[in-house]
């Protein structure tokens, strides 16, 4: 936002037209956050190397927070976890650690790259909660049955049980039945 044709009645904002600062504080904060977490270009004047260091540190921190909520998903990737998470999360703002892990697990499952322990963890979550991928997960009220690899997950009245059934083939996660 640069000077020029302001309505007469609007008081001049000394910060808007100062050289080197394009826009209000809110616009400038939004531009910085977008550059840091959503892949937008870095506003002029910032040290690109240092912002890059901050971006990496942030992804590292997020990977640890997601691992706390999705321990089996993280453990299934062993020492590659941080790299796997960072590759997925770069340019993707956080929706909170639970949903970030959920979205990543679903994407890996769709690509056939979800480790078995992560598949079990995802199946347990899918059995207990309805998650539309856009808003906060909600607890299921109807019973559900899920199969992943050789594990069967059953949820009744909020209680989730898992059985390992040797000989059950495949690693597909059954699609969710319609919820209430």
């Amino acid at each position: 936002m640069t000077g020029g044709t302001r309505p007469e009645a609007e008081p001049l904002d000394p910060y808007v037209d100062r050289p080197g600062s394009a826009g209000t504080l809110g616009e400038r904060q939004a531009a910085l956050v977008a550059a840091l977490v959503a892949g937008a270009p870095l506003p002029p004047g910032f040290d690109a190397r240092l912002v890059g260091v901050a971006r990496s540190a942030l992804l590292h921190k997020r990977s640890g927070e997601v691992a706390r909520h999705w321990p089996l998903l993280a453990a299934g990737h062993g020492r590659h976890w941080t790299a796997v998470f960072a590759a997925w999360a770069a340019g993707r703002p956080t929706s909170g650690s639970i949903r970030d892990g959920w979205d990543l697990a679903r994407q890996l499952a769709a690509e056939g790259r979800l480790p078995a322990s992560g598949a079990e963890e995802l199946a347990v979550r899918e059995a207990g909660w309805r998650y539309d991928g856009r808003t906060a997960p909600r607890r299921r009220r109807l019973p559900t049955l899920r199969r992943t690899g050789n594990a069967v997950v059953v949820q009744v009245a909020g209680r989730v049980r898992m059985w390992i059934v040797p000989g059950l083939p495949g690693a597909k996660i059954d699609s969710a039945p319609p919820g209430p």
Binding site: A30, V33, L36, V37, P93
Partner: peptide, 12 residues
Amino acid sequence: VRAGGVEAGHLL
């Protein structure tokens, strides 16, 4: 920690 409706996930 957020701006323009986007969470930074960190103290900025």
